[in-house]
Design a protein around this nucleic acid. Structure first.
Lengths: 187, 187
DNA sequence: CACACCTACTCAACAATTTGACTATGGAGA
DNA sequence: TCTCCATAGTCAAATTGTTGAGTAGGTGTG
């Protein structure tokens, strides 16, 4: 149900093809609403049928043709109406890693340490990517300046959310690694 | 696929019925692997068939009878094997709220402020519950003491993860509310 | 004493998501 | 030149997850 609005929200950034969206949902949007290409193509089909988006086919020379989708006025209105409603369900975090940690006590501590290490470096990488996105938003301005000038601040606030999340993940991993180290100084 | 291991991990805490698990998955486990009662009952059925857990029926006087499930040795081994593998897929956060924030610029700022406010108080409530769980773990001891004495630290580390997440959510909401206020001091 | 809510589930139907395979063309590197 | 990777998708199947209703006795509240 929410994928629909995630797609509409993504189209606020402007016209895009299914393929392009599938890239976006893989990196930035994936932060709060992951979706596979298949889901996107189907959803786009549905949204076009319902008149919330419009397609236009672009002939390409050396590439397969593509269909570019834009929000219609109806789509924009529906999205805004959705955005004004309180969320129907709370955020859901699904993390295999946490199951493994919950069950870690039956496992060689060294192996668990390696898992945390991997998670840590992954979180650091993501954080670095977010910071680069942030720089693109700011374009050298201070945050204050940006917030005063920008006409859309939603994407910036969600970005801040992502940064907060990954920063905290880094801290948590570091703390856990410290605990594991103190627990098994001999090995 | 992972629900299986989430259930096995939950049974590390000891024998439980489907109903009891559905309560646990509603509060604590829901932090990293949400599941509805129906999913749990189905999964328990399957796990029992596969010999990873064992059921025993407990007759009750003034209640419907219940089936209590325990981990078998096979189940324990499979869980440990799973816990030693690196995660097959990264964590997935699915949050309707973030879609709404992404699309907030088409909405009355006052409405958005209210959404953030709601989210903030929800996060604070969750944080308070986590802190109580933490106190039950520690039983008056210092963390250091606890970590030295406890035979299982996995559940404590995941709890720290949950606390970190909600702490950060609170900070993020506060920051966003500050930004919204500065942006629209007139209303 | 009626009514809602708690325990403890089961069943059926439906919606959403994931996985894998398949089609085509073009460009880049070994 | 051969192979891999990127573009730009489609199709089918399987798995997962959600929703709603039904059963049935017991407990607590006004």
């Amino acid at each position: 149900m929410s994928l629909k609005y995630a797609v509409l929200a993504a189209l606020l950034e402007g016209e895009a093809s299914g393929y392009e969206l599938s890239k976006v949902f893989d990196v930035s949007l994936a932060n709060f609403w992951p979706a596979t290409p298949q889901q996107l193509y189907r959803e786009l089909e549905r949204l076009a049928e319902d008149g919330l988006i419009e397609a236009r086919v672009v002939q390409q020379e050396r590439r397969p043709n593509k269909r570019l989708f834009t929000l219609t006025e109806t789509g924009r209105r529906e999205l805004s109406a959705f955005a004004a409603e309180p969320p129907r369900r709370p955020a859901a975090l699904r993390d295999e890693f946490l199951i493994k940690i919950q069950a870690m006590d039956g496992v060689d501590p060294e192996v668990t340490r390696a898992l945390f290490e991997e998670r840590l470096s992954w979180a650091r990488g993501k954080l670095a990517r977010y910071e680069r996105v942030r720089d693109r938003f700011l374009e050298g301005r201070t945050e204050e300046r940006y917030l005063a000038e920008a006409d859309r601040i939603g994407p910036y606030l969600t970005l801040l959310g992502g940064i907060a999340l990954e920063t905290e993940t880094v801290r948590w991993c570091e703390r856990a690694l410290g605990i594991l180290k103190r627990r098994a100084p001999l090995s």
